[in-house]
Simulated assay, not measured.
Amino acid sequence: MTDPLARHIGVSERSGVLEPHNLVRFSARWISPAADLSDVVDTYWSVEWRLPAGDAIEQRIVDYPAITLSVEEGDVPAPYVVTAVRPQAWSRVITGSGSVFAIRLRPAGLAVLSGLDARALAPERELTADLDERAFELLRKVSGAGERSREADARIREHLAERPLTGMQQLANRAVDALVASPRVRTGRAVAAELGTSERTLQRALGETLGRGPNEVARRIRLQEVVRRLSTTDADIVTVAADLGYTDQAHLTTEFRSVAGVTPGRYVRELRRSQANLAGVVGDG
C-alpha cells in the first residue's frame, strides 16, 4: 500500500543529486514524519532499485548537512549505517538490487536517539550495537516493521519523551532553518545576530549537534542550491554566483570544486553529455 505521506523526489528540487536525471532509474521518495517529531526528524527518505546485470550507476550527491541513520538491504555496504556531514560529495556505485530507508535527523536528533558524538563520527560507517546500542535498537525495530516510517515515528516519539531537547539543540535547529530559508553567502556572525545569539554560541551549538561549524553547514546548503540551478535551469554560472551572494564567479568555482571535485563549468558540460546519453538509451529502448 502506498504511504499517503510519501512523494517522489523531484528532479527540479533542492536534493543535491549531481545527476538528477538518474532519479528516474530509482524509486526515490521523501516520506514525512509525524508533525510532533519535527524537532527531531527532518525527513525520512527511501530508495529502491533493480538494475540489469552488468549495469551500474555512480550516484553522487552534495548532501544536506545532517546526520542520517539508515536501514539498507540488498547490494549495500551494511545493514545499518550512520552517515555524518562529510567534507566532499557523497558517492556510491549502485549495482544489482536493493533498498534504503533513511532517517535524516534535525541537528537535535542525534542526542535524542543515540549517545554518539557528532564531532567524532566518520563520514559513513556501519552502525552496530557496540557503536551505539540505542540507535542500533531503533534501526533494528524499524527494519522489522511492515510500515517503517510509522514504526520510526512511534519509536522516536518514545525516545523524545525520555530526552527532551535542550536550548542548544533548539538553537542548532533554528540555525539550520535560517540557512535553508536563505542559502546566500553570509558570515556566521550575521547568522548569529539574526538568531539573537553570539557567534561563539552558534558555533558551539552546531558543533555539538552536527560536528561542523556554521560556515560549513551554510556552504552545504548553498551548494545544494547551486546544483539545483545548474542542473535544472538555464541559469549561467555568473548569474548563479551573483544571486547567491558570492564575491564573483571564481569564489563559487572554488567552493563548488572543493566539494564536488570539478569546476561548475565542467560539471555542466558533463551533465549535459550524460543527459544526452541517457535520452539516447531511453529512445533506443
Rank of each mutant, 00 (worst) to 15 (best):
G167E: 14
N173I: 12
L165K: 08
R189E: 09
E194D: 14
A152M: 14
E194R: 01
Q169I: 13
A178G: 07
R155E: 15
L195T: 03
A192P: 02
V176W: 06
N173R: 13
V180H: 00
A154M: 14
R157M: 10
G188N: 00
Q169G: 15
E162G: 06
Q170E: 02
L179Q: 12
L165N: 10
T166C: 10
R174T: 10
E151M: 07
A181P: 11
D153A: 05
A154S: 06
T166Y: 12
A152H: 12
P164G: 00
G188F: 00
R174C: 11
H159A: 01
R157L: 12
R184I: 12
H159V: 04
R163D: 06
Q170T: 13
L195V: 02
A175L: 07
T187E: 10
T197F: 11
V191W: 01
R174Q: 14
V185Q: 07
L165Y: 05
A152K: 09
V176E: 04
A154N: 12
M168E: 02
A161N: 13
T166G: 14
P164W: 11
E151N: 10
D153W: 14
A175H: 10
A181F: 05
E151C: 03
I156Y: 06
Q169N: 07
I156Q: 02
A193W: 13
A178W: 05
R163I: 06
L171E: 00
P164C: 07
A192N: 03
A192D: 09
R157Q: 08
D177H: 02
I156R: 09
V180W: 14
S198C: 11
A161Q: 15
M168K: 00
E151H: 05
E158Y: 10
A161E: 15
